[in-house]
Design a binder for these strands. Sequence first.
DNA 1: CTGTTAGCGCATTCAT
DNA 2: ATGAATGCGCTAACAG
Lengths: 356, 356
Amino acid sequence: MASIEDVARATGVSTATVSRALRGLASVAEPTRVRVQKAAQSLGYVPSAAASSLASGRTKAVGLVTPHVSRWFFSVCIETIESVLRTEGYDVLLVILPPGDQLEPGPGAVTPPSRQTIETDLLRKRVDATIVLTLPLVRRELETLRGLGHAVVYVGDLVPGLPSFGIDDVAVGRRATEHLLRLGHRDIALVGSNGEDPDGWGPPRDRYRGYVQAMGAAGLDPLPPVRCDLTVAEGRRAARELLTGGPLPTGVVAVSDEIGIGLLHELRSAGVDVPGRVSVIGVDDHPHADLHGLTTIAQPVAEQAEAAARWLLALLQRVRVTGGRLPAGWDSQQERLPVHLVERRSTAVPASLVNP
Amino acid sequence: MASIEDVARATGVSTATVSRALRGLASVAEPTRVRVQKAAQSLGYVPSAAASSLASGRTKAVGLVTPHVSRWFFSVCIETIESVLRTEGYDVLLVILPPGDQLEPGPGAVTPPSRQTIETDLLRKRVDATIVLTLPLVRRELETLRGLGHAVVYVGDLVPGLPSFGIDDVAVGRRATEHLLRLGHRDIALVGSNGEDPDGWGPPRDRYRGYVQAMGAAGLDPLPPVRCDLTVAEGRRAARELLTGGPLPTGVVAVSDEIGIGLLHELRSAGVDVPGRVSVIGVDDHPHADLHGLTTIAQPVAEQAEAAARWLLALLQRVRVTGGRLPAGWDSQQERLPVHLVERRSTAVPASLVNP
DNA sequence: CTGTTAGCGCATTCAT
DNA sequence: ATGAATGCGCTAACAG
């Protein structure tokens, strides 16, 4: 395994020059650089990340913390972020942290890993920064992240105290509801939020708030939300709840497309005409939304992830030139990306207006 | 940022003892261990991964190379592998390597990253081992992986020269076809393979071979495969191709459920009754297969990933005790996990037999 | 533009 | 069971 000394010997320069040449620092004569690169190439030399980190204090790695990888939003974020960071030479350390539950004690001899130890032990000293994807955080976790001593960015929601890239979820809820209102619906329910429940969390809660706003502005009473996890299976369950729980609304806002798709299927298999009897609107513009003809509020997922990654890269750059200290106010960035309505075949004028 | 020396001073022992105590080595007196752990805890000491790697030669990290993260098979593998490795204290370095295409040159001053540099530079010295998920490998890449100098495991196909965990894809194609044959179909097509095309690749090619075998055993002539990428959108395209390209078969084997779902939708929106006019069978048992009533050959994805991860962990353990050298024959492991048929509503006896 | 000199923070001998 | 000494391979001053 060739080391930097081998390259230095082969080139007849010092290891310092090899290091500089290979990193592309300006202060190396062009011919020298070329010779060094050639030698490194032919020796198959690859710098040791460990040695480099130890000497420089930088790891050239970023932690990516996510509660899921198979759900659409998260997988898109992961792909986008990995690609942006990789381009700039950063490695991605993937950390999957299931929402809400403590990890099981492992068979290891050492202390079993908990959320706490993962947050600190793993991320501290191993990475130069951390990106967190829409993970419900309790206050203590937020403090832990801020105490990591390096930059942390949040994607998918706006969380106070952390630089965040997301969308305006209140506006999303409002616009989805308004679309149904404009079509003439007055009896509108929302599926997939805990409402103002103290356990309620970020996006679903904010979308419900938008729904409440829109209903209020139309002089209508908002219904309490139908609780439901953001999955197709849960959407189906919610549909059954809707079908058996009193009069069916004519319009339904699903806080995510996955819920919307579940709703669509279950309502139709129960013989309910969508959009004839019930209109359904989702949020996301999931790739399958088109397949199912689901009207939705599209959110730019890759764009959120890319904006966050690029912003982080720029911050890391500034940190480097300022000698490792995070600039004041680094954590005040809050960016909302625009959403837009995508009309498909799951929403229509309510039957009562078509055949009065 | 507390260092091992701080802990040593606080405890009144040497750094060597701190190191041993914190790693749970046997040769430390119980009371000493406790004192050290307490001190480390209260000082918030976290060992530096870089220093530890440099000193020990082990990184406690594993590279995970995948062509996709949003596709179901891959996301399940990623989640499973991360979880298994994390439990044993290994970090996961995620590397997304799009199949087939060279990466674009980045804006960096250094050589733009290519598949080649990623395979070597990134993985060599940064990780103790690498797991590769069903990525079409050309021979050179395979050699590169083997030349990495550390353990490499392949998941999702059986590749000669690399320890592999997968399923019997020929049998999968055979069983899917046999299911249709048993129902009475004779006019059966397969969608999603390049057949014996030299560019053809692993699982789809093997599943086509199984189809050919089953057709042959039934005394029928196999049709050339309908080419199609393994996505819903491509499945829809393939359906249109089927609809316009001569007589429609009565049975269709889709080499993946995503294709199958696309087929189902497009056929039905064209007014073709499934399974009345055409039966469709997929492969995977994708979570959405149930939603669509798609009959399929289920494969155990999490199990493949877990088997590979655990096998790797065991190998790494052996490597450690033998002083860092890979044991002879480490690369000869080839494991096939069982699949099974899941009958749903997309396959039935052909109409010709129902109304003779 | 290049060489010299020091560590970076640990794990590991080899002692005891 | 514990301590002292050594070096992993590189980068960062500091000279020149």
